[in-house]
Amino acid sequence: MTSPASSSEVKYLIESSEGNTFDVSGAALRQSNTFNAMFLNIGADGPIPFTDYNEATLKKVFEYCEHSVNEENYSGPKHQDDLSKWDLNFFNEMDQKMFIDVINASNFLDIERLTSYCCERIARMLRGKNTQEMIKVITLPTAEELEAKQKVEEKKAAAAKKVAEKAAETAEKTETLEELPVQQLVQTTRNKLTRKYLSFSNE
């Protein structure tokens, strides 16, 4: 099922974050440099886990890979004007959330062509826009938001520090509690032995 073969007929099983599995052809998968680096030579004994991404996203990414299998070798990004109808439909079908998920997955899988097209598409969205219009397209944290985020992080760090300190204290206490009976036991035994020895020597 999943073997280190170079034939395009070989199918690989991919596992998504939901735990679902689905088939992807070897030829499509080989467009992913991550896959090439990790599995191509050694093969995989079971489904390949890409569990950071959901099934819909992975299917969308590999749909693109399957489609571009037969295209000529990739030589730098094409401009959006040069994209085929299929490519345009592929991008237009996606909503914003899916688009972002596809970019993230494509970046992780290191599919150069898809990542480039997605990035160029975003660059196009920014073209000819003034600052106010740009803010409507992209989200950039404002200074206040950054400050608030920093405060939250500081609070979290302080809380984590407190928890760590408490844990350390508790561990210390437990250690002393556990140590006490043992010490007592040692002491009592030692006393008994001394007493016995003394009595024996007296005799």
Binding site: Q96, I100, N107, V137, T139
Partner: peptide, 13 residues
């Protein structure tokens, strides 16, 4: 249309 979180994308992107 929702806005695109530019800074949440991977650095390379």
């Amino acid at each position: 249309m929702s806005t695109l979180p530019l800074l949440k994308l991977p650095v390379l992107c």
